[in-house]
């Protein structure tokens, strides 16, 4: 399993395409069916998927754990969202916390974790 993170527009998808050859079979967390992720080669916008799971009263942590168990070769792309001020609104706060926890689970299970800044990917776990 691979995990690619970094801020919005930091070059994550491009990195996945150029370095891991992932161009097709990418589920978009913004709109894909939840179970699509369990068989996809890659999922993008996982932080949005987390938001959608919460909105439908599904536990994102349990979902992420089952994703790791059922699709251990997937590449997960997720924005780093934890920097900045703690949101005033409760739902935003819970979402951000859930993203943090899910990200830790995904990074923990991944053989390689890439973090991007200015389009530059650094392996912060494992080796490229």
């Amino acid at each position: 399993m691979k995990f690619i993170t970094g801020g919005a527009y930091s070059g994550k998808r491009r990195f996945a395409a150029e370095r891991f050859g992932i161009t097709a079979g990418v589920a978009d967390g913004k709109e894909c069916a939840f179970n699509e992720v369990l068989t996809a080669k890659c999922v993008n916008n996982y932080h949005i998927l987390v938001r959608r799971l919460i909105a439908e009263n599904k536990d994102p942590i349990a979902f992420t754990e089952s994703l790791c168990a059922e699709n251990p070769d997937i590449t997960v792309i997720m924005d780093e969202v934890g920097c900045g001020i703690v949101p005033v609104e409760r739902t935003e706060r819970l979402w951000r916390e859930a993203c943090g926890r899910c990200g830790c689970i995904l990074a923990g299970k991944s053989d390689i974790v890439i973090r991007l800044i200015c389009g530059i990917g650094t392996a912060i776990k494992g080796e490229l």
């Binding site: 970094g6 969202v81 934890g82 920097c83 949101p87």
Partner: peptide, 9 residues
Amino acid sequence: TNETGADGI
């Protein structure tokens, strides 16, 4: 420059 886009908002 500046890092923008990592606050999830």
